[in-house]
Nucleic acid binder design. Sequence first.
DNA 1: ATTACTATAGCTCGAGTAG
DNA 2: TCTACTCGAGCTATAGTAA
Lengths: 235, 235
Amino acid sequence: MKIGKDVEPVLWFVLYTLLRLAGGTGAVKVSTTQLGEVMGVSQQSTSRHLQHLERLGLIKREFVSDGTYIHISRKGMDNLKTVYEQLRKSLVGPASTTLILEGVVFTGFGEGAYYVNQEGYRSQLREFLGFEPFPGTLNVRLRTKVDMDRREELERTPGLEFKGFKTEDRSFGGGRGYPVVVNDEVEAVLVIADRTRYDRSTVEIVAPVNLRKRLSLKDGDVIRISYSSSLERDD
Amino acid sequence: MKIGKDVEPVLWFVLYTLLRLAGGTGAVKVSTTQLGEVMGVSQQSTSRHLQHLERLGLIKREFVSDGTYIHISRKGMDNLKTVYEQLRKSLVGPASTTLILEGVVFTGFGEGAYYVNQEGYRSQLREFLGFEPFPGTLNVRLRTKVDMDRREELERTPGLEFKGFKTEDRSFGGGRGYPVVVNDEVEAVLVIADRTRYDRSTVEIVAPVNLRKRLSLKDGDVIRISYSSSLERDD
DNA sequence: ATTACTATAGCTCGAGTAG
DNA sequence: TCTACTCGAGCTATAGTAA
């Protein structure tokens, strides 16, 4: 019996309570006694629950002299967002939220190609796209605050999770992908690496084809990236 | 340990799963075996959970020869909506959804006054308004599809619950109230009785004052009813 | 096919307590 | 204060089975 993925109902409730206490930031300072009181559970059980949540990677704790800071991790947030999305779908209907981002194409340092060519990412992209990804990414710079806000809105949805992996040489971090349509023509995935997620002004796009050729794009061209929540995978 | 109100985490999960299977309508035909499979739980436990949910009044069951229809009750829906609202608040920010309804004032059959004067409702209205309710209601007819759709949107939020009650003579049903502001001036409660909720074109307003006098209203006047989700009680 | 009872294995809870 | 251990009471799950 698992809510979302991995999470037992009781633990999910603890996570949900933490979210309510933490608000948007996902961090609170709260003791096991306090938290237990809010939930109507003993300090002891609360302590155990928090250990479990931490072991599952849903929260991180930071112990200070007079208490503990609890951060809900990415994975924890994803879980909550997934449940939120499910509830939204059923309660307010298939709100076909369409988000549109506009940005300018630019040439990066070829890092995108390097990452896409890692088999660890390739295989996941293959699954999301349904095709072999073109071995390069399209770099897009967002120019306006509106676009950056929309990007944040996009990030509030769970999207598709890329898992990190290790090769002999080095380790690669995780990230998320969002199924999008570029210039109302080409299906692609907007990729946001966990590492780079605080650079709010750029995004990268991966597609089954060479987007520059397919859409005759050159540096400085403006493209339109559409995301529909209904394109999300079902679970 | 209760999610929303009354509901243990495990039972909440069952309710949540039912919602996902049922979609917006809140009704599914599903066997304990099937439901158990979806949740990763035995048929026996599922059966017990459904009995508990029914005893709590969160679902209703209808047994037919080849299975069972499960309806999520109003109370069950309210619980799910409450959790949804909580998640929304934390995940997408205090979306100060402001709904505006417009409608035409008309004179009813005095039923409103009859109900408001029942102490069983008066005491609850007193609590919601913070004042003694004026002994009469303002009847409003919604004219456009947009207004009726907004009314439905309003009904998707949990609002305030009016409990039904019994007197020596008869019994009175429950309903919901939504805190609103009339003509941007007067705080009031929009009341929707469970019994009348399928008459989509009319609503009734209760306020601490005589709205007709206070706003110099006569039959046929158009009023503006604003609802802000942030006015909702916190729990 | 259904739903749901009984019996028991196993898990979770909180009191007591330690660090 | 804080977190978290141990351990027994009680609750919950499933197998077996009935209707």
